[in-house]
Every structure is written in C-alpha cells, then in structure tokens.
C-alpha cells in the first residue's frame, strides 16, 4: 500500500481554497443582478438637444429647464441673442438663480456670483458655469 502523500493540512487547505472559489463565484452570481438592479436607469431625459419655445425667454429673463438630466438655464441677453448655461454652481452643486436687476446669477448656498457668460464674478466657485451650445430654429431655441 502506497503511503498517503497528502497531509491533512494540505487536504484542508485544498478544500478551503475550493470552498472559497465556489463561494466567490456564487457571490459574483448573486451580486451581479443586485448591481444591475440598482444601476441608474435611462429615464429618457438624456436627449442631446432640447427645444424651448422662444416666448418663454423674453429679453432680460432666464428660463430654467432640464438638460441631459441636470438643471440648465437659457436667457436672452439682448434681443435675439441667447445664452444657455448649466445652472449647477461649480462650488458645491446648488442651483444658481437669475438676478434680473443685477443681470447676474447668484448661488444662494454660498453667495457665488456669475456673469451672463458664466464666468465667476465673486465668491467661492472655482470655475465658470458650463456653456451649452444654442441655435435658433424659427420660434424654437435649441440647446445642445
């Protein structure tokens, strides 16, 4: 009879590795549906272009809307001249508000101020508001 070449500790280690391997595979098999279940879904608001009725944006006023799932703002700086910006403050993500008397944007969280072209006037924001492309199509203002 041949001597047993595998010691009990080797056998135990082998079984532990096998158990760990099978357990890991099962964990991945159970974890994958969980990750997919919780993954953000496409809500349909990620359209590359948004059309806004021109009458909603009169000269000197701003209009807030959703652009690719985030708040954005379009304003008519002068008759026939439109600017669209991200409305998310670059400091901590609050939504900027249009100050018509001062013709600038104010972030109500920490008093960051932005000009109509998105550049920082004062306050803690580290960079300007993102500028979004704007075109005109008849009575529609197309953003994106």
């Amino acid at each position: 009879m041949e001597p047993n070449l595998v010691s009990p500790s080797q056998r135990r280690n082998f079984l532990m590795i096998m158990l760990g391997g099978v357990g890991s595979l099962l964990a991945v098999a159970a974890g994958w549906p969980l990750v997919r279940f919780l993954m953000p879904s496409d809500t349909g608001d990620a359209a590359s272009q948004v059309a806004i009725d021109r009458t909603l944006v009169t000269p000197g006023t701003a209009h807030l809307f959703q652009f690719q799932g985030r708040p954005a703002v379009v304003l008519q700086t002068a008759p026939g001249e439109f600017v669209a910006l991200s409305a998310v403050c670059t400091h901590l993500g609050c939504i900027v508000q249009w100050q018509e008397e001062e013709s600038q944007f104010l972030c109500p969280c920490h008093a960051g101020r932005f000009s109509t072209d998105g550049s920082v006037i004062s306050g803690p924001p580290p960079k300007p508001l993102e500028i979004l492309p704007v075109t005109l199509d008849g009575d529609q203002v197309l953003v994106g």
Partner: peptide, 9 residues
C-alpha cells in the same frame, strides 16, 4: 419589466 433583474427580486 423595466428594471434589470427586477423580475428576479
């Protein structure tokens, strides 16, 4: 019908 693996959960 819409959420991935929602039927399973």
């Amino acid at each position: 019908n819409d959420v991935p693996f929602g039927w399973l959960i």
